[in-house]
Design a protein around this nucleic acid. Structure first.
Lengths: 338, 338
DNA sequence: TTGTATGCGTTATCAA
DNA sequence: TTGATAACGCATACAA
């Protein structure tokens, strides 16, 4: 049933080498024979066997993309960006996700599965000894998304959250007059949470604004849990003139809705800002002031980096930094339309 | 650099066949030799070459998943479900998306790329002659998601939107007293839009409720365009006591926000319902009455079907139907908590 | 229980 | 410009 290069050769009365040549470097074969081979290919509906070809060329033209099972839009936007670029460059994408709370074994299995990919982009929500050990076993070009793994040679694409976060908080403090802040983040070990909280603390210290450790909450990036937290705290926060910095839009939306349900006006009685600038940010009322993070660009950049290293393996390790950007809308109290 | 089965054999002082045997979990290998081979494998960090193996076994253990570039959450939920099940069954997932407005050539290219997958699940936003022609060239097991392709042998998993849609509209008419309806859908050629509109028209006819063709809008499933439409129409709709049936949650959210911005109360002055029960549905105020659609189950089912056919190619074509379900919240005017 | 030899479909090397 | 043939790494029928 499967038609091989030999079948084509037979039908065109040539050798398999000739068929292979019209397939790959078509110019070095006589016009007439080429036509003959081409129509044989056409008639037989011949497609080269990917495995045989991969065996020879040691290339699959497949890239791996390993993601933690993230809060929705991030996830899909990275895939979208990576997918689009991969197609442009003639690659396909193999995707797997490993649970955010993975103990490392799942990542291990996933990475081991990558035997056939030409390169792999990995996003780990948390870098620890185990992930480091696992990633050090990767034999193909490796790109780490949104993080760095010490002691492992890899390119990386990171988002400079710092700049956007700093701009956001400065805006909150300087332009909106925030004096007391609440931080609602993900797990304390989460890379993004760490970065965003660090930015907050730095700017707050500079501006002589207090962050009480009791006002740092670690949730799970979900709307529901943030909403529940909001239900409990929102009145107090409002009374004490707090402003809320949520580490993603979804949690910000949860807080806002809890406030509104409690009859508290956002931003007048409680300013709230988010992070990521997902579609949700334009759907809340008031619309979210947030930081836009180039998610799909990150996916595309990862693919770029992978392909570049594939072409030039000796290239020095590259770290690509993408900028995040403050997006001022209504939820912070100063609607300076950009 | 790449360590082959021969290297392992050498190191363990056995032949490659023995290595191959311990690899394929054949218990027909002496315990002592097996141990020796296993530690050789371990020490060398040997991984079987996927291509060589594929060449022999004619199996890659990779499944293809082709999706249109859909409205966010649908897309990622299907991937999530498919990915999880694929892992359970020992398969990997290759994902590609083809633009919803593809003229067919992109789908063609994508499908042609699937040469190495053991099977492929395809979701087409629109079934036409061209997609049909393209899909008929697929040589591996094919599962069509949310649609059927005449004349092409394939399994399929569809969501019975009809039932959920009918329940939704009956609820709107019977329980909420809707007498005039506006439909806001996607493109007229979109499968989901067609189904949902058909359900609407059927129920409306049965209940003697009018659907003026002028009140059927075809947008693009996005929040923004629905919001814009809402800005123009919401007052008139409210004045004339219309209810709005949006074909997805995102557009419903757009309409609701436009209404609220215009000072129109939802649902009191304008009931609005959505479809899909995405996370957005719980984030609107009022919360959306909608129809829950088992998105991730669809992905998982697709993988199941693929694997089943892989095991038994002669199995008759299967059509798996997943049920959708009415979810009553607040946006329709009757908050009968389920 | 283990080893030898063959073939899977392709590209690459070399000779014609 | 073309053809014969040797790899590529693995699984397997068959021999030992």
């Amino acid at each position: 049933m499967p038609v091989s290069i030999q079948d084509v050769a037979d039908r065109a009365n040539v050798s398999i080498s000739t068929v292979s040549r019209v397939l790959n470097r078509r110019n070095i074969v006589n016009d007439v024979t080429r036509k003959r081979v081409e129509s044989a290919i056409e008639e037989l509906g011949y497609r080269p066997n990917v495995f045989a070809r991969g065996l020879m060329l040691r290339r699959s033209h497949i890239l791996g993309l390993v993601l933690p099972d993230l809060h929705g839009e991030f996830y899909s936007e990275i895939i979208r960006g990576a997918n689009a670029r991969a197609r442009e460059l003639g690659y396909k994408l193999m995707i797997s996700s490993v649970a955010a709370d993975d103990d490392g074994s799942e990542l291990m299995a996933t990475v081991a599965d990558q035997a056939l990919v030409d390169g792999v982009a990995v996003m780990v929500s948390e870098v620890n000894a185990r992930t480091r050990a696992t990633l050090s076993t990767v034999k193909v070009p490796l790109v780490v998304l949104d993080g760095e793994v010490q002691g492992v040679r890899h390119d990386s694409v990171v988002i400079d959250q710092r700049l956007g976060a700093v701009a956001l908080i400065e805006h909150l403090i300087r332009d909106c007059g925030a004096r007391r802040l609440v931080f609602v983040g993900g797990l304390p070990t989460n890379f993004d949470t760490i970065e965003r909280l660090a930015a907050l603390q730095q700017v707050a210290a500079d501006a002589d604004v207090k962050i009480d450790p009791g006002n740092v909450y670690h949730l799970d990036y979900q709307y529901d849990t943030a909403f529940e937290l909001g239900q409990k705290r929102v009145k107090e926060w409002s009374r004490r003139r707090f402003s809320v910095f949520a580490a993603n839009d979804e949690m910000a939306a949860g807080i806002i809705d809890a406030a509104i349900d409690a009859g508290i006006s956002v931003p007048d009685e409680l300013p709230v800002v988010g992070f990521d600038d997902t579609r949700i940010a334009a759907m809340t009322r008031p619309r979210l002031t947030t930081v836009s993070v180039p998610m799909s660009s990150m996916g595309a950049a990862a693919v770029d980096l992978l392909c570049q290293r594939l072409e030039d393996p000796s290239r020095p390790a590259t770290k690509l930094t993408l900028q995040s950007e403050l997006v001022v809308r209504e939820s912070c109290g100063v609607n300076s339309q950009t």
